[in-house]
Simulated scan of single mutants.
Amino acid sequence: MPISRLVDPLLVLLVAAGVGLALSGGDWSFRTRGAKIGRALAWSAWLALWLLSTPWLSSALARRISTVPRDLHAELAGSSPERRVLVILTAGIDADEFGEPAMERQSAAGLERGLAAVRVYREYGFGHVIVSGKDVRGAPTQLASAMADLLVELGVPRKKIILETESRDTRENALHSTRIARGLSADAVVVVTSALHMPRSLRMFERAGLDVLPAPVRFQSLPPEGPERLLPESLSLRRSQRAVHELVGLLEP
């Protein structure tokens, strides 16, 4: 089990609240030390869960971590389109229950990355496109193949697509994609992934010894104005969880 799963905000705060209630022993009078600690812990967990569920805090966390887009025109100047490599990091895929094509079963993040990759491909031109990721629950090649099918459907020539189906996480995405890109003698490598996931991806590619250019997808917008930004919602809690997941990933040795 990855450590990021153990520090999921919802899991941590529910455990903290439970421990706090257990320590209080039903004594809310503050007359015992255990009751004082338990009550403080339970209320702190409640407050943290509320704040992490607000659009205000979740948006601030996501925007603080995310990589903002850069001017790829300037970054790619001087390199030949045929010597450029585009790397797409896959995100996830649902199990096949009703016979839908794998392309349609990709996660929302995966579809966003695929659409952005096609835009970047059309705008700048690339000699090769590496689709990186292994489906750890089903057929190993299913995830990358699903992304490749989407790219082809949207106009990317299949002959330019290289499937990298060994990677189980971001570190392996970087290692295996770097190996392939070096074998292609690439002049420039552009990586497409979610803006929130990009800082960790760039760090892993740097550790793999490859200088890459970021093409981040889905930069988080500002929260709504007014009191609504302080009202909890499940979507915001999910966004905070993703931000914490990426922060923990940045601490990986």
Score class of each variant (00 low, 15 high):
203 R>F: 04
116 A>E: 15
233 E>F: 01
196 L>Y: 07
37 I>L: 14
189 V>E: 00
249 G>A: 04
72 L>I: 14
150 L>H: 05
41 L>T: 09
135 D>N: 13
64 R>L: 06
31 R>M: 08
137 R>P: 10
248 V>G: 06
232 P>L: 09
231 L>G: 01
83 R>T: 11
56 W>K: 02
207 R>E: 15
32 T>G: 10
93 I>V: 12
137 R>Y: 14
72 L>F: 09
200 R>F: 07
86 L>D: 05
226 G>D: 03
166 E>A: 07
146 A>W: 03
221 S>A: 15
33 R>V: 13
232 P>Y: 10
244 V>P: 00
186 A>I: 07
249 G>L: 06
148 A>L: 05
171 R>H: 06
143 L>Y: 04
37 I>C: 03
100 E>F: 13
16 A>H: 02
2 P>D: 12
140 P>M: 03
117 A>V: 04
226 G>E: 05
70 R>W: 06
190 V>N: 02
150 L>P: 00
6 L>C: 14
70 R>H: 01
78 G>S: 13
18 G>I: 01
207 R>H: 02
232 P>W: 08
155 G>D: 01
95 A>I: 09
245 H>L: 11
125 G>E: 12
164 E>L: 13
146 A>N: 01
198 M>V: 08
101 P>Y: 02
68 V>L: 05
46 W>P: 02
214 P>Q: 05
206 E>I: 05
50 W>P: 09
211 D>L: 15
82 E>H: 07
26 G>W: 10
249 G>C: 07
15 V>D: 11
1 M>A: 14
68 V>E: 10
41 L>C: 13
129 V>S: 10
136 V>I: 14
80 S>L: 10
85 V>K: 04
140 P>D: 11
247 L>R: 01
105 R>Y: 04
121 Y>R: 04
49 L>D: 07
90 T>K: 01
141 T>H: 07
112 E>G: 09
80 S>Y: 02
43 W>P: 07
130 I>K: 09
95 A>E: 15
162 I>R: 00
100 E>I: 12
83 R>A: 14
25 G>Y: 04
76 L>K: 08
168 R>E: 11
146 A>L: 00
209 G>Q: 08
196 L>I: 06
100 E>N: 12
151 L>T: 02
173 N>S: 08
124 Y>D: 06
215 A>R: 09
238 R>V: 00
231 L>Y: 01
8 D>E: 14
219 F>W: 11
101 P>D: 14
131 V>D: 07
191 V>D: 01
159 K>Q: 06
205 F>G: 06
15 V>G: 13
58 S>Y: 01
33 R>T: 15
127 G>T: 05
202 L>W: 06
32 T>E: 13
220 Q>R: 09
54 T>I: 13
203 R>Y: 02
203 R>K: 12
195 A>T: 14
44 S>Q: 02
71 D>I: 11
81 P>W: 08
29 S>D: 14
16 A>N: 01
161 I>G: 09
44 S>I: 00
165 T>F: 00
151 L>F: 02
111 L>A: 11
152 V>A: 13
210 L>E: 02
59 S>K: 03
205 F>Y: 15
224 P>E: 09
222 L>F: 11
11 L>V: 15
190 V>E: 04
90 T>I: 12
